[in-house]
Structures are given as structure tokens and as C-alpha cells.
Nucleic acid binder design. Sequence first.
DNA 1: CCATGACTTCAACGTTGGTTGAATCAATGG
DNA 2: CCATTGATTCAACCAACGTTGAAGTCATGG
Lengths: 108, 108
Amino acid sequence: MELEASVRLAALAEPTRLRIVGLLGEGTCCVCDVRDAVDVAPNLLSYHLRVLREAGLVSATRRGRWIDYRLDPDGFEVLWAQLAEAGIPLPGAPAEVSTCTVRTEEGP
Amino acid sequence: MELEASVRLAALAEPTRLRIVGLLGEGTCCVCDVRDAVDVAPNLLSYHLRVLREAGLVSATRRGRWIDYRLDPDGFEVLWAQLAEAGIPLPGAPAEVSTCTVRTEEGP
DNA sequence: CCATGACTTCAACGTTGGTTGAATCAATGG
DNA sequence: CCATTGATTCAACCAACGTTGAAGTCATGG
């Protein structure tokens, strides 16, 4: 797990990139399609795609003039695994009735 | 859903805060306990806790001199719901064999 | 071969975010 | 009431991030 969980989370923690990931989750692929759906300048779109690529959440392949982007399922799996290991409550986890370890009588 | 998913994600997308959330997931509560586990200056810790609080991931109550922090399960549930709605592949979701909508013959 | 289209890279800018040190607030104890 | 302890707030700083405009690739088509 060369990549920190926070890197992947930071990649997702931006509205435009989150929308892009949502789009790619539906199978949209070439950059121009993404550009039509997400209204940003092409160079800015490239930047955001690069962030997602470097975070391992997305991969790209050239097809003639065009470059297709798709989600990288492995990246997401690794992310969720890292969060689970860090003790973050993921969906489907027990509600965890928050038993406080602190002594409630006279403080630490 | 008054709060954007990106706000909650950004709150998690920082190593120190991710560690704090992990600790609170185990039930650690008062700020001084967190401070012992996460080696940061008290004022900086306050800052990070405030970010988590404003993201709705954590809640606090005063107990005498001390202030106890705990995870807010609702905040996490809302986050996962928002991500699911945005089309982000969550853990337990089907691997989604990435069917590309783009025509593979002659581009867009 | 040059023009065009798709996309990326580079350099610069303004804003945001994490960090620090000093000051402040809240609650207890002498 | 004042000193002390736990925790927060404030002001200032520097680095990182998102944004923009111009220049640069890479592949196709006239």
C-alpha cells in the first residue's frame, strides 16, 4: 500500500473530481464526454484527471486521438481496506454504540 | 443534506484527522487522551477537532474540565449515502465490469 | 507536410488549509 | 478570589491547491 489513504481521500474531496468519478462509474470514458458533462476548461479537466490518476482511482488509455478514462476498482478497494484498517466506520459496519473508555466519574 | 460530501471527505483527507477518527472509533473520548495518542500541539488538535465537528463526523460534550469527543455515526451514514448516490463504488458494491459507453470504432 | 483537433503540460496567480505562538475562556481547588 | 488545568480562539505565516492562459504533444486528415 504505497499510497496513503489521505491521498485518495483528498482526490475525492473535490466536487468536480467527485462528479467525474461518478460519471466514470457509469461507464463514460473519453475526455470529451467528461468535458461535456462537467463544465470546466479542458486544461483544468486534465489537471483533475491527473490527480485522480495519481491517486490510483482512475486509469487512462489512448484510442487514436482520444484518451479514455475509466475507474480503477483496485484503487477503491485499497482505499476502503485502508479505511477499515484505520478504524473508520464503513457502510455496513455495526452502529457501534460508542462505549467511551474514559472514566465518567473524575476525569482522566 | 445541507452539507456537501466533499466537506466530509476533506475532513477525512488529512492524516492527523484520520487517526483521530480511528481513535474515536475505539471509544477514546476526552481531548487529552487523543492528545496522548496523536502527537500534536493542543491548539492544533482543537483545530482538527473543530474541522471534524463542522463536518458532522464527530460530536463533543463537556464533562467538568474535560471535553469528550465521539464519532457521529449519522455523519458517516450520510456521507456513504451521498457517495452511493453520486455513483462512487463503495465496499460491497459489485465490481462493475466497466462497460464503456464510448464507441470503440471511430471515437466520439 | 502542414493544418486541425484532442488532450496535456507549463508558468503564474489568488485562495485555502495546516501550523505556530500568544491570548482567551471555562471549570476546579487552594 | 486567584492560581491552575483543560481546551479553544485569534492572528500571522508558509505551502499546497485549484484556476487560468499560453505553449506543447500526439495522432489524424486534407
